[in-house]
Amino acid sequence: MTTKLAQLKPLRKLMPIMVLALLGAVLTNCETKNEENQDMESTITKEAFGTSGDGEAVDLYTLTNANGMVVQITNYGGIITKWMAPDKDGQMADVVLGFDSLSNYVAGHPFFGALVGRYGNRIAKGEFKLDGETYNTLVKNNGPNHLHGGTKGFDKKVWQAEEMKEGSTVGLKLTTTSADMEEGYPGKLDVTVTYTLTNDGELKIDYQATTDKPTVVNLTNHCYFNLTGLKRDVLDHVVKINSDSLVAVDATLIPTGKLISVTGTAFDFREPTPIGARIDDESDEQIKMGGGYDHCWVIDRVGNNMALAATVYEPTSGRVLEVSTTEPGVQFYTGNFLDGKLSGKGATYSKRMGFCLETEHYPDSPNQPQFPSVTLRPGETYSTSTVFKMSVRK
């Protein structure tokens, strides 16, 4: 017994040292994990991006979520310039068309990633009536019609920007004021658009506006997506649109006033279908009108809450884009007018290199009283939301 006690005495002396060492290891491990968690927090940073055509300073904001997804937005036009998203193997790639420099945007582009207003889409002949008064000075910048807010719409404004961080999300709040009769629209319009990036891969866009005179408003984002990472055209992307009907258009892409069923047409995406499967079916009069898809689908929905409008799957990368919105329609556009004259990020933007899902009220609604109203009056708040969610399917 004496011998055994003698053998234990050194161990007793070592016990406090061993406990301290173990505690130190635990603390070190906790510190390491805390550092890792800090490294994975969502962040937003700001850097100078150049000057606008009017000489205003422009910034670029980088939003990064805890999973490494990156969205870059500039306060010039509220443009989404980059969206880095993983494929099924975890490889990151940019999935939106655009440029690396502000000068390319200022030089002119087909609304890559931009906020569009006051009125997204077309207004026939650049005029409309409101409360018995005719407004006919909207610029005709798309054949005989007005398109996307005019010569200097919201896509060319330098917005005031405010960085946001709340919990696990980061965001960017953009504000601007459009003067009474700016681009031919009545009323001073105060606008706020907030982008929020979540750890679930969602980019939420909240739009709000108020006016001091009756006016019309239809705001949207004009992001061109390519889920291959800009490697090739989008014809193999598989699309599902939750819609039974379509806003029929004439040869200038102005609504005829009729909603037509998609059943038995090239516009039936109620089941997942590759974009290229029927895009050149010129036996369909509407395909001929748009040179492919450039139409507004009526979203199947109940009430005014958020509804899933469309889902897009790219088989090679496994990337999935889901679009949900409070809006009644979504303009599905397949880059029919891209002609290869523009390039960026190592890609040439040729025909059908990107697709858009522009959540919106229907085109030419100010002249179509049977369509959902786009009129905003003093004392009211225009409020609408859209969520673009990126994920992968393995």
Score class of each variant (00 low, 15 high):
residue 108 G to D: 06
residue 79 I to G: 03
residue 268 D to E: 01
residue 210 T to L: 05
residue 352 R to F: 11
residue 378 P to C: 12
residue 208 Q to E: 15
residue 24 G to A: 11
residue 392 V to D: 03
residue 216 V to R: 05
residue 45 T to K: 06
residue 249 V to M: 09
residue 389 K to M: 15
residue 279 I to P: 07
residue 54 D to P: 00
residue 48 A to L: 04
residue 271 E to I: 09
residue 325 T to G: 09
residue 127 E to D: 11
residue 36 E to I: 14
residue 229 G to T: 10
residue 21 A to C: 08
residue 127 E to K: 14
residue 336 N to T: 07
residue 74 T to I: 07
residue 62 T to H: 07
residue 383 S to I: 09
residue 292 G to A: 03
residue 131 D to V: 08
residue 74 T to K: 08
residue 90 G to M: 02
residue 373 S to T: 14
residue 263 T to N: 15
residue 233 D to E: 13
residue 137 T to A: 14
residue 326 T to S: 00
residue 24 G to T: 05
residue 138 L to D: 13
residue 173 K to N: 10
residue 300 D to H: 10
residue 325 T to S: 14
residue 264 G to Q: 05
residue 25 A to L: 14
residue 169 T to L: 02
residue 379 G to N: 10
residue 270 R to C: 03
residue 8 L to H: 05
residue 343 S to W: 02
residue 293 Y to E: 05
residue 52 S to I: 08
residue 317 S to I: 00
residue 13 K to I: 13
residue 132 G to E: 01
residue 77 G to V: 12
residue 51 T to D: 15
residue 347 A to G: 06
residue 273 T to D: 07
residue 73 I to E: 07
residue 1 M to Q: 09
residue 178 S to Q: 14
residue 130 L to I: 03
residue 132 G to S: 02
residue 318 G to Y: 07
residue 223 C to G: 13
residue 123 I to D: 00
residue 160 Q to N: 14
residue 39 D to E: 12
residue 281 D to V: 07
residue 126 G to T: 01
residue 237 H to Q: 15
residue 193 V to Y: 09
residue 286 Q to K: 01
residue 229 G to M: 04
residue 324 S to T: 11
residue 351 K to G: 09
residue 78 G to Q: 07
residue 356 C to R: 02
residue 354 G to R: 08
